[in-house]
Design a protein around this nucleic acid. Sequence first.
DNA 1: CGACGCGTTGAATGTTGTCAAACCGAGTGG
DNA 2: CCACTCGGTTTGACAACATTCAACGCGTCG
Lengths: 248, 248
Amino acid sequence: MPNPVSTSAMTASPCPHRQGVSCGDCRMKALCLPLALELDQVERLDRIVQRGRPFQRDEYIYRAGTEFRSVYAVRSGTIKTFSVNDQGVEQVTGFYLPGEIFGMDGIAHTNHISSAVALETSSICEIPFNRLEELSLALPNLQRHFFQLMSREIINDQRLVALIGKNSAEERLATLLLSISTRNAQRNLSEVRFRLPMSRADIGNYLGLTVETVSRIFGRFQKQRLLKVDKKEIEILDLDSLQELANI
Amino acid sequence: MPNPVSTSAMTASPCPHRQGVSCGDCRMKALCLPLALELDQVERLDRIVQRGRPFQRDEYIYRAGTEFRSVYAVRSGTIKTFSVNDQGVEQVTGFYLPGEIFGMDGIAHTNHISSAVALETSSICEIPFNRLEELSLALPNLQRHFFQLMSREIINDQRLVALIGKNSAEERLATLLLSISTRNAQRNLSEVRFRLPMSRADIGNYLGLTVETVSRIFGRFQKQRLLKVDKKEIEILDLDSLQELANI
DNA sequence: CGACGCGTTGAATGTTGTCAAACCGAGTGG
DNA sequence: CCACTCGGTTTGACAACATTCAACGCGTCG
């Protein structure tokens, strides 16, 4: 197999990056599509969705400064979004797993203000935004769905603000690990064993911490028998304690 | 005049909190309405907007846990939005000035997860969300406008994450002051003299700082002749240096 | 093999938080 | 009219957590 697929994504089904899967057949449809959408409505949405070949690690989905055309859904893999300020400092704004939508921050402007790269081999569904807008005028459920998706994005960002503004480094990392854990569980993957496709630097950047701090806390969590860490492979040994640490 | 109006809001026009002003006549329409909307379309929007009596200081516009029905536009005054986590810790999520829309984080759920209170006497336009949805199906410009408004909210939150995660206390406070300054300028108010209607605690909460730190930095800024601070009244003495501090 | 990216570890520094006390102005009641 | 309280703010001393700077280990790739 040419593509190094994350172990936690291993299933009996064929390659998770395969193309030609319609929305109706997609394993992730429950996550990114509105439940209320009728079959024929799903088909209409399906017709505007564009599915290309998978993106390889470090490939850009879109770049800051380029024209905004579409929002995107992750079919497989993991996407990192980030922006770079005037001084060239990068800010990671999100990690997106299969079934999640990204690129909605581009809607406000004609050009992207952030970029998106694949952290591992990833399949992406591109949804041209002007066609989505048109379709939303005809399908009230779809319009509502996108309002709700964007609202959820706002809530997520607000939670991140609270996390970074009020919590210690340990609490922040514990919370991120648990977020990925539960999102994995939603995807029928293990919630205690998974691979973190992003670097320590990305994690630190996202959480408002330095690489060194992230590394030290991984060490601490291991010493406390909360985690087993082998490079990017994570095993949560004590979910309860980790949740307590994250105030959940 | 029974309502203590903020000095910076003083104009020759009648009381800024007066009711009965339609969207078409509202001084803030350029800020909250889509420019592309035709006159008759503005009227249709106007018909669903509900304008009640002004809210007094500390009055709630909506409370976490109550049913989500509407989003809101500030006509006059200032609104603070915040959520409270399981441990009872408050997180201020935003300060909203005239012409700005708040409450969009409620769209994702049937009940509000955050609350909104008036920081001073404020007039609010309530926009019932289900009627807004209906109207958006008929007015493509309006649909687009709300997608863009929500996208802007996402961008704002991402910027706040970057500010709190990467910048020092001084940089954070300088950035907030400049944000309010420029937003005042957009409203034809002074960008160097204004009143901060929120407490030091609210400012610190919003910026991920303690009250003490906020107070100390106000002191430092005064000593450096960047600001003149008299309780809540702020005068920016050195806009350039402040912008440099905020990396702008 | 050596260079490089990435991650880990150590020691020192410093910014911000914590705790405590005092201040100030507004409002209240004697 | 004064003393009092109360919330919000300021100031100080100290501690702590995270950053900074530096070095090193490890695996990969040219």
